[in-house]
């Protein structure tokens, strides 16, 4: 029987090793839709974290009560409730974020990650573990889409704009590839702002990660082979 993973591992895994977007390749719809702006992506990530955290919490609390047959509908209702909660709260307190994310806030209901974590983890683990798992997945997803948004916004518009969505920050624009005041210099590639750019960025990101993983694997294999050979040689030597 597998040893129950430590609390720290539960939290850290989704941040890196088991990242919901880059490793599990789930939740790709918002990852392409809201990543044209870094601020929107961070906002989306935070809303997502809230939803996955709360739903994990409640589902874990109720895991012993919900019968097997109505498992899925129950999970869906719980998740939908928290998505509606998030919608109501964000439309009141963060209206700019709500309007920039549009329909994708509602689509958190069918986000594979939320449902996936509920089924795979929260239904079988303690409340604390589930909370940590929710937090970890949320933050992991947030930094993942933020990374994509960073690339897309910088390459696509050449600047990083803050303060448009989170209005409590004063609005300012960081010129990187363009937008320098008084000059028309621009190295921005508008392709990245469009949907095609989103696909390309995500595809390349995944390819990079796969390449890194492959490299690790290859090294591990090499090491294992070397050890095996050394062990065999030692055994041979020993037999001699």
């Amino acid at each position: 029987m597998d040893q129950k993973p430590s609390k720290l591992k539960v939290f850290l895994d989704p941040l890196c090793k088991a990242n919901p977007l880059f490793v599990m390749i789930l939740g790709t719809c918002p990852a392409l839709a809201v990543t044209t702006s870094l601020e929107s992506a961070i906002g989306m990530g935070l809303l997502f974290t809230f939803v996955v955290f709360c739903s994990n919490l409640i589902i874990s609390l109720l895991r012993k009560v919900i019968p097997e047959e109505v498992r899925t509908p129950c999970y869906i209702v719980v998740i939908a409730t928290f998505v509606t909660v998030v919608k109501l709260l964000s439309s009141t307190f963060l209206p700019e974020l709500y309007s920039s994310l549009g329909v994708f806030v509602s689509l958190l209901v069918v986000n594979c990650i939320v449902l996936g974590r509920a089924e795979a983890f929260a239904s079988q683990n303690t409340v604390v573990d589930s909370m940590l798992d929710g937090l970890g997945n949320g933050l992991g997803y947030t930094w993942a889409i933020a990374a994509i948004a960073l690339v897309r916004e910088v390459l696509g518009t050449g600047t990083l704009t803050f303060g448009k969505v989170f209005t409590f920050i004063p609005k300012f624009t960081l010129p990187i590839l363009s937008g320098y005041s008084g000059s028309d210099f621009s190295m921005a590639i508008p392709l990245f702002k469009s949907s095609a750019g989103g696909f390309l960025v995500l595809g390349i990101a995944l390819a990079i990660i796969a390449a890194v993983n492959n490299e690790k694997e290859r090294k591990a294999k090499e090491k294992a082979r070397a050890e095996k050979a050394a062990a065999a040689a030692a055994a041979k030597g020993g037999n001699n």
């Binding site: 469009s194 696909f199 390819a207 796969a210």
Partner: peptide, 23 residues
Amino acid sequence: LPKAFKGVPIALIVAGLMAIVFM
């Protein structure tokens, strides 16, 4: 294909190219 691209990455890149066509 290069190993890193096999599977999902190339699928996404193909999707990107299709998106450009439809654009």
